[in-house]
Design a protein around this nucleic acid. Sequence first.
DNA 1: AAAAAGCGTTGACATTTATCAACGCTTTTT
DNA 2: AAAAAGCGTTGATAAATGTCAACGCTTTTT
Lengths: 193, 193
Amino acid sequence: MHKTLLDYINQHTTLPLTREEEALVETTFQPKKVRKKQYFLQEGDVCKYVGFIVKGAMRQYSVDEKGVEHIVHLFIENWWASDRESALMLTPSKYNIDAWEDTELLIATIADMVDMMEKIPSFGQMTRLMDNRNAIASQRRLNSTISNTAEKRYEEFVDSHPQFIQRFPQHFIASFLGITKETLSRVRKQAMK
Amino acid sequence: MHKTLLDYINQHTTLPLTREEEALVETTFQPKKVRKKQYFLQEGDVCKYVGFIVKGAMRQYSVDEKGVEHIVHLFIENWWASDRESALMLTPSKYNIDAWEDTELLIATIADMVDMMEKIPSFGQMTRLMDNRNAIASQRRLNSTISNTAEKRYEEFVDSHPQFIQRFPQHFIASFLGITKETLSRVRKQAMK
DNA sequence: AAAAAGCGTTGACATTTATCAACGCTTTTT
DNA sequence: AAAAAGCGTTGATAAATGTCAACGCTTTTT
């Protein structure tokens, strides 16, 4: 179970973890299972944990006044799930995170994360790398959203996240792109030619 | 000139800078002026610097095949301007950054930034704080973009960035929101009632 | 002082996307 | 095995937003 995470850390850092560091990671991260359709985080709750996905698939979404869900993130293996705003500011989350497939996570509190960043150099390094990647991905997605039509956004999505197409139903992808499932269906039909 | 930056760092950290640390910051950051309409970063170039804006206003934007500009960021005093993707990956930037008002910056290379994060604890702390705030702001903006109509997006923008309304022309705001200037003009007219 | 360029607005119209309802098909629940 | 729920598609129509052209006004350039 923890092996996946240790490998992940070593793959995203220049200095390999020492035995002691591995031990700290193993005792700090707690295994957690979230079954399909169950919540990992529920709107209104303060996000207490960061979860590393060992196996499974999840989504993060908000629900508007009309009850429509808007998916802001999709997660699969080796992704980190949490609501950073809620976790850092200690405010009630505006989002839900639930499992689309039965999911196995390794969870840690924010305090534990900060602690490990300080005590384990490669953990800090890995975290910074993830921050950078996230910032880059957000910027790209934002630029795509304000610059492109639905069709082009979908194309870019397929190019950048081919794994997601396999794992999630089409109406999740539509929501992630900010369009309706009907529009995505039509866009795909067009693009097939 | 550097005083603004030193104050900024001290305001975003728990440990105040020592004399030696201040000296390092002062020798590392170089002053740079960018006059209105001049580029700080041009599409196709690799972004070499991070700029702290001491005075002035800038924008970051991409240009699509039709020649239309899409503004991804607006910056004023006490903001950090750079294209993180280009700077970190050493790839040609897809963006332009230019000055809307005559602007005074303090610039440092990415290597210098990394160096200072390592040598100056509060600099690292400040950087992490900025990363967190950025991540939170990106998430909010993304959620707003995929969830809301143009009108609501504009309302949220006014609430969260009232300073920008004063500093930038309306068609910049429209572009930032991913709509045309005509649509923003109509949305505002509607909202006035 | 005159000319040019930039900005915001408006109208007419086109295009994109959303909404609502219905349908077949598959998967899940009973 | 039957019933229900979920998924993707399609059609008809509505709403949101974009496009293009024109106009007054202000600011900048000549």
